[in-house]
Design a protein around this nucleic acid. Structure first.
Lengths: 343, 343
DNA sequence: TTGTACGCGTTATCAC
DNA sequence: GTGATAACGCGTACAA
């Protein structure tokens, strides 16, 4: 009766091994392991002793297969080393851990095809749900997700096709607050440096900049430069727009990386421009002058996404919803001072 | 014959469903799915067509259970949002992905008991191996790991007990390079601000500082202050050590966070001290003066750890080894200039 | 080339 | 209270 698993006993005892040793059935062992009621205390104690002695550990893979749920969710992003994503990751992991779930993280490295492959692999593993920062707007995994009924929550960028839960950041509001802040301090000629317009967020922020400028009646000379940007490209553009007619007196940068490029360029050119950056960053306060930024809260976004996902896992069947998370302007010296040297 | 799974067919077709539909056996379906030889092209084609039509996806959980391996590794750290760990995570994930494995990431939040619980959960899931940045030196999960034969690689900090593969950073060499750099620029009175001595790395760096000072014949006045530190505590200590006899002219900080605290304190006190920080950080080059740092390479450490783990998974049975990864001094202005104002 | 029977380790069902 | 047995979905061994 136990000969069957005898040769494996040494390696990894199963419930059958425990059962044989304790002279009970596997089901009883299962009951004890899972703290189910209906086991006489002394039986339970005997089983526990054997479990301890044999070093038995429940095989969750088998358990989860039986139950049909894996108690695992996944997060797919572009690059886990990016501070934005790592904060999202930490928040999602936390929500998962609180609910006794585990988190599989995967990088798609910005490639839609790799993202598709990653998502399919996750679906094959029967993860209970997925949070994705999509590489592009083509819902390339839609069919797979649909067929497998795997709940998904998109973050930071929307995706075409079937409406899905989506957590976005208020790009428009963020840019507007930046422009208004600069205008309140007397600026009228402001330049915007955005990222590669292939990114949805880059386009959003650019459009918000243009729209806000118009609504505030600012000069409509086009002072928008989209990336990809390098310190050199920003440098060149800055030296043009600061000379000639109606020179710019302030700059808004569309993300972290471009803020860095602009800071380097401004430093080299020794230009006393005001600056508001998109995305807060560590040590923004230690730069001279401290950098005013539009702060998105990646942790809050990640938490929200995970919460939405778990709501679905708990049976929420309501319509897919899009949540726009607010941004916050963190005012530091760089956006306030005007005409003072930048270093 | 198929009545059995009929009611589930709509939801998640299994190989049995495909087999029934294609009028072949499950085994043949399995062969097609796994690209095994020995299937007539037209049979394979017919099966593929049904797979496509039904939207069948192999259940990897069942597959992996059968095979005894999960093709999953895990990473346990203190906090995924910490740049050091997120870079480690990205590197580990990359190595995993290259080898068709998936990565489960988990935070232990610095708590040994939580770490233990997390590791046990991972072992229960039968992850193939684990990379851990241990919360403390007590090998609290040793018994579980031993019993389950789960390979483990420790990172950044060693653990007592059974020798295990361990990837460390050259704390001693890093600190020595910092001290030597300062001494080469004429400094003789240097202070060291370390983190909480509960951390192994903090003690290592402190000891390295003291040892290097002695070996270089520097004044042995104890200028060591261990944390936890805040900007205020560094502030207070600095104002003492810069007054009185033999005032310090340079500072070495034991990690990222303390570097930040020191920068704030130095700025407030308007002290023209030289500074070398441990850990590189984004924008270190943009601070005025740019900050000289001892750079550890978290990505390299993570990669090395993952590679070591996979070597074990591939059957490497050699003795556990400890690898010490080199650090690199990145010289920027803060450690070079002497007696010039700090801002 | 294809199929049958069974096992992976657990939980669910239902009987005792 | 406790146990026998059948799933979960797939792969392996071996037969046809």
């Amino acid at each position: 009766m136990t000969a069957l698993s005898d040769h494996r006993t040494a390696a990894r005892p199963t419930m059958a091994d425990v059962a044989a040793e304790a002279h009970v059935s596997v089901k009883t062992v299962s009951r004890v392991v899972n703290h189910e009621p209906g086991v006489r205390p002394d039986t339970a104690e005997r089983v526990r002793a054997v479990i301890e002695r044999l070093g038995f550990r429940r095989h969750d893979g088998a358990r989860l297969m039986r139950q049909g749920r894996t108690f695992t969710i996944a997060l797919v992003v572009e690059d886990l080393a990016n501070p934005f994503y790592s904060q999202v990751g930490a928040a999602v992991e936390r929500e998962a851990r609180i609910r006794q779930h585990q988190l599989i993280t995967a990088s798609a490295e910005g490639s839609p095809s790799r993202e598709r492959a990653v998502i399919e692999a996750l679906v094959n593993r029967r993860v209970d749900g997925i949070v994705v920062v999509p590489a592009d707007e083509s819902a390339s995994s839609d069919a797979v997700l649909e067929a497998s009924h795997t709940p998904i929550v998109y973050m930071d960028r929307p995706v075409r096709g079937t409406p899905r839960d989506t957590i976005l950041s208020d790009n428009h509001g963020g840019i507007r607050s930046a422009v208004e802040h600069l205008v309140a301090h007397g600026h009228r000629n402001i330049a915007f440096y955005g990222d590669d317009p292939a990114f949805w967020t880059a386009r959003q922020r650019r459009d918000a900049f243009v729209a806000t400028q118009q609504s505030l009646g600012l000069p409509t000379t086009p002072r928008v430069s989209m990336g990809p940007h390098s310190p050199a490209s920003v440098h060149e553009s800055l030296s043009q727009w600061t000379t000639g007619p109606e020179p710019i007196t302030a700059v808004i940068t569309g993300n972290n990386r471009i803020t860095l490029a602009a800071l380097l360029a401004l430093r080299e050119l020794r230009l006393p421009l005001s600056l508001v950056g998109y995305d807060d960053f560590e040590l923004a306060a230690l730069i001279d002058p401290p950098v005013t930024v539009v702060h998105q809260d990646p942790a809050a976004m990640g938490q929200k996404a995970a919460q939405q996902l778990f709501a679905r896992l708990l049976g929420d069947e309501s319509q897919a919803q899009t949540v726009v998370m607010p941004t916050r302007l963190i005012v530091r010296a760089s956006g306030v001072r005007r005409g003072t040297p930048n270093r």
